[in-house]
């Protein structure tokens, strides 16, 4: 609804959608998708991409975006009309999808703070990938809320660096995309 004449309608509620997009893994395809979002003023909260079918050169792009119902419909239609896009599926349409994110955290500290960091990481079920006398690197995989919660807690335990993968998602049930 981005006509120059449209009044911004604060009444229209926005919601968060996770889209799975199957594309030809050709040069520039990610730039095409990212450019579509920036050029048309849509939000991207998270974007992950990797080749998923090597012999067919197909990649799966997972996009988390927020918008009104009309905006989400536009985003899907705009994505679907790109030439290298095979399929677009709104995973949020079919009930809550399975969504996971992997995060790496570097925590620096001494003494009690260091012990506390390790204890909390264990309580969250995080893996310890690297340890020195003054630092840890933890790996944590989980739903978005859990990732946020884990990062929040580690912030008080000497967190100095975070690397997140973005969301990987899939719809529930037997049906494949």
């Amino acid at each position: 609804m981005s006509s120059v004449y449209s009044e911004p309608s604060p009444a229209a509620p926005t919601s968060r959608h996770t889209l799975a997009v199957i594309v030809d893994n050709e040069p520039g395809v990610l730039a095409r998708i990212a450019g579509l979002f920036s050029g048309r003023g849509y939000n991207i909260e998270s974007l992950t991409v990797s080749e998923t079918e090597h012999e067919k050169h197909l990649s799966r792009i997972t996009i988390v975006t927020t918008g009104t119902e009309a905006e989400i419909e536009q985003i899907k239609a705009q994505l679907a009309r790109l030439v290298p896009v095979h399929r677009v599926r709104d995973l949020s349409d079919e009930g809550p999808a399975i969504e996971r994110e992997l995060v790496l955290l570097k925590v620096v500290g001494q003494g009690d703070q260091r012990v506390e960091a390790l204890r909390l990481a264990q309580a969250f079920g995080a893996r310890t990938l690297d340890a020195t006398l003054s630092s840890f690197i933890f790996e944590f995989t989980g739903a978005l809320e859990d990732v946020e919660r884990f990062i929040g807690i580690m912030a008080d335990c000497g967190l100095v660096e975070v690397s997140r993968t973005g969301v990987a998602a899939m719809s529930r049930g037997a049906e494949a995309m």
Partner: peptide, 26 residues
Amino acid sequence: TGRIDAFSPGSRKIHIDIDPSSINKN
């Protein structure tokens, strides 16, 4: 359309387009 919220207020609209993204855009 001119002012979009005052555009043809009383009509039911049929829209034929080869581009799915044109439908319901504006």
